[in-house]
């Protein structure tokens, strides 16, 4: 039996639903010794900003039970270097590349998106990291405010016809409300979740283990939060959802698909094993064969919820 693993988001068709998450796979080529990236459903890049960024002072990461906390601070090469160095490389990379964009005002995001639009190149769409403070509204994060989210999405929508994905934060009261705002603004798809607030402290020194005190928690410990978020979003809106958070195995992928995800992204697990997403893709094929699933789309949202 041949299994059809392909999925669609907006107008774009992906060969399989397993992508690698922003900030956990660099610009896509760092792990070429270890993995054939052309097998991936897509590569989502590190967040790209208007200017290059050094990021935060160390320490930037710490391990936590089944997870980690990071405060990288959006260290990246900036959009100009990205266009110069990476866009040409993507011509032959063998899979879709989604550029993740971050900013601190609507103009910041627009600047990056417009530059990318005019540079052409093999980028199939954009994922918008809204877990950034909006300096125009008193530094409140875009991600927690439906109005900011809607306005930002609208502005970007009017500047591109390509796939536009809004990446949502779990650090909100009602993620369904933010999802609805992004869809009203014109998002083709939503991805969830970005990291949760997290903190750990060294009792010996009484110092937090990362320089920003509070950072972003990721890894297997956040998986149930990711699955619940996908479930809520897929109930609230009609666009495809990309599930993110704590994925390490094919079983985790199936859970996300059943909860309503049309695709998933593997994040923290790449740090242990850069080839883990490709292994999961193989396992997904095997799982479908063994369970007589002809097309992966048959699993999406098929959780049998209690009434």
């Amino acid at each position: 039996m041949t299994v059809d693993l392909s999925v669609s988001l907006g107008d774009v068709s992906f060969k399989n639903p397993v992508f690698v998450a922003s900030g956990t796979f660099g610009y896509g080529t760092e792990s070429n010794d270890l993995v054939d990236v052309s097998q991936l459903g897509a590569i989502v890049t590190k967040s790209i900003t208007k200017h290059p960024r050094e990021g935060n002072p160390p320490p930037r990461i710490v391990e936590t039970p089944s997870g980690m906390i990071n405060s990288i601070g959006l260290a990246n090469i900036g959009v100009d270097k990205y266009i110069e160095k990476m866009i040409p490389v993507y011509e032959k990379i063998g899979t879709h590349v989604i550029t993740n964009i971050a900013g601190f005002s609507i103009d910041d995001y627009l600047h990056v998106l417009e530059k990318l639009e005019s540079s052409g190149g093999n980028v199939c769409g954009y994922e918008i990291n809204v877990s950034c403070p909006n300096v125009d509204t008193g530094r409140m994060e875009f991600s927690v405010d439906p109005k900011s989210t809607r306005e930002l999405t609208k502005a970007l929508r009017s500047a591109t016809k390509k796939l536009l994905i809004l990446k949502l934060s779990p650090n909100v009261t009602d993620i369904g409300e933010i999802a609805a705002a992004a869809v009203e603004g014109g998002a083709d798809a939503l991805s969830a979740i970005n990291t949760l607030f997290g903190m750990s402290i060294d009792p010996a020194t009484r110092r937090p283990n990362i320089n920003t005190n509070i950072g972003g928690l990721s890894g297997p410990s956040i998986r149930p939060v990711g699955i619940a978020s996908v479930y809520k979003i897929s109930k609230a809106v009609d666009v495809p959802v990309i599930g993110i958070g704590g994925i390490t195995s094919v079983k985790d992928v199936i859970e996300y698909l059943l909860a309503g995800a049309s695709a998933v992204q593997v994040g923290t697990a790449n740090f242990r094993d850069a080839a883990i997403a490709t292994r999961i893709i193989n396992d997904l094929g095997t799982y479908c064969e063994e369970n007589d699933i002809a097309t992966i789309c048959d699993l999406i949202g098929k959780v049998e919820s209690y009434d």
Binding site: G23, T24, F25, G26, E30, S31, L34, K46, G55, P57, P58, P59, R60, I61, V62, M68, N70, I72, A75, N270, F271, R272, A274
Partner: peptide, 13 residues
């Protein structure tokens, strides 16, 4: 302290 040790995570500066 390192995350990936291969340049992916940008953790060890």
């Amino acid at each position: 302290y390192m995350g990936c040790a291969t340049g992916l995570c940008q953790g060890c500066v």
